[in-house]
Write a protein that binds this DNA or RNA. Structure first.
Lengths: 233, 233
DNA sequence: TGCACTATTTATCGATCGATAAATGATTAT
DNA sequence: ATAATCATTTATCGATCGATAAATAGTGCA
């Protein structure tokens, strides 16, 4: 009943794959499966989509929970095994260009149905790896952006970002992130030119930073004009 | 074993509530329950938290799905049974003030663990009511904001918002929304002064609108100064 | 006070879940 | 060619799920 070929009396040749290949394929397809069905998706249905029987999964993973952990690892670490963040600090190029490059490539990596859904599912579960990721975004990306902005604005880059600086960066980052959520989770129409959206968000962000934080410092106000002028590409 | 008092031999006095009260309490607590556990939470655990037995739920709701539907209705419609959006069009007050008032009261309603989690859970399920809500935000809130901005910028308010205008508004809206997600879903520290965050986001948004859309129209550029000046409160 | 009504509980069903043990069959080494 | 190895399947267990039927007990009315 299960296998068409078998129901028809034609035996399905049993495939034997090397453990490494099997394991990788299991994780890959399990990622897609759990992204669609959520982590409550059944192991039988997953096995069916893999073209194998359910107990075989337990030959490769001690428990469903272990398989899911591998899915997390893959999803969370894959977009980060790049040096994008480091390129944020390459001061030979204008900050605006660096931001544009970073967000285009970063969103190329995470703006897809699978990544975003796994991310949101695990976020709702309150998993450590999710909290760790959010902390990484803050420390490795936003903090760096603020530092570079300070440098370009002629401010001290020594001290840690202020709460207000961080908040402005988060709202900026969240605004871009929400574009992906609208497109791939809510499947709502979005402005198709993603790079244009990012460019506008960056322009707005840079102006907003000098505005909101310029009140405290004459120094910033002086550099403000320069920044806003470069905005008119 | 289940009921402490019963295990101790002391009979628990059976409570009888009026059907209306019961029903309301069921929906209310079911909302909290499903917000925490997700919609895969079991009816037995839910009944336990309600202090009743599981089959009693089926006296009030034909199925678990029907109970969940009531939860959706309550969560999605509650924040909208106000005239906040209409006050966005009250041109006797400056647009900036109207935006501030709207987002402060709107986020007062939706920035809590229960609302945000139900919203995200149902969004991942791709439910009609979620898509409807996103459409409502676009048509009743963002479109109105754009219209009011156009009016204040001295532009025509007749035509529908352009894709680019909508996108800027979405990024703005999403940035604010993500503040709530960070605080109540990721339980990450945020700038505690929510009104300050909103004020900064509005400032940035208004400037960004005139910047990004001012290229096409001399008219906007002329009004731009006025808008940016009022930003210096 | 006793009876009718119904809110609530007890008991239970069939389906499905994650997981394990034993049987089978494809591959590899001798 | 045959035996050993191990990837894969078949069969099955106990727990838990949503849901239903029948028994029980609290409430209001005569």
């Amino acid at each position: 009943m299960r296998k068409k070929a078998k129901a028809a009396g034609i035996p399905v040749k049993q495939k034997r794959l090397s453990p490494e290949d099997r394991r990788k394929e299991f994780i890959r397809k399990a990622t897609e499966f759990f992204a669609e069905e959520g982590f409550n998706g059944g192991t039988r249905e997953l096995a069916r989509r893999l073209g194998v029987t359910q107990p075989l999964l337990y030959r490769y993973f001690p428990s469903k929970e272990d398989l899911i952990r591998e899915v997390y690892r893959k999803v969370y670490l894959e977009p980060l095994d790049s040096d994008w963040e480091k390129r944020l600090s390459d001061r030979s190029r204008p900050l605006r260009d660096r931001l544009q490059y970073f967000y285009v490539t970063y969103t190329d990596a995470i703006f897809n149905r699978v990544w975003l859904r796994i991310y949101l599912f695990s976020g709702l579960k309150g998993l450590d790896i999710n909290r760790w990721y959010v902390g990484t975004v803050r420390d490795k990306i936003l903090t760096r952006i603020i530092k570079e902005w300070r440098f370009e604005a002629g401010l001290s880059v020594q001290s840690k970002p202020t709460a207000k600086e961080l908040e402005l960066a988060w709202v900026f980052h969240g605004g871009i992130f929400y574009y992906g959520v609208r497109k791939f989770i809510y499947e709502s129409p979005v402005l198709e030119d993603k790079e244009r959206m990012i460019a506008d968000a960056i322009d707005t962000f840079l102006i907003g930073m000098t505005r909101a934080l310029g009140k405290n410092s004459r120094e910033v106000s002086r550099n403000l004009n320069r920044l806003e002028t470069t905005a008119d590409r």
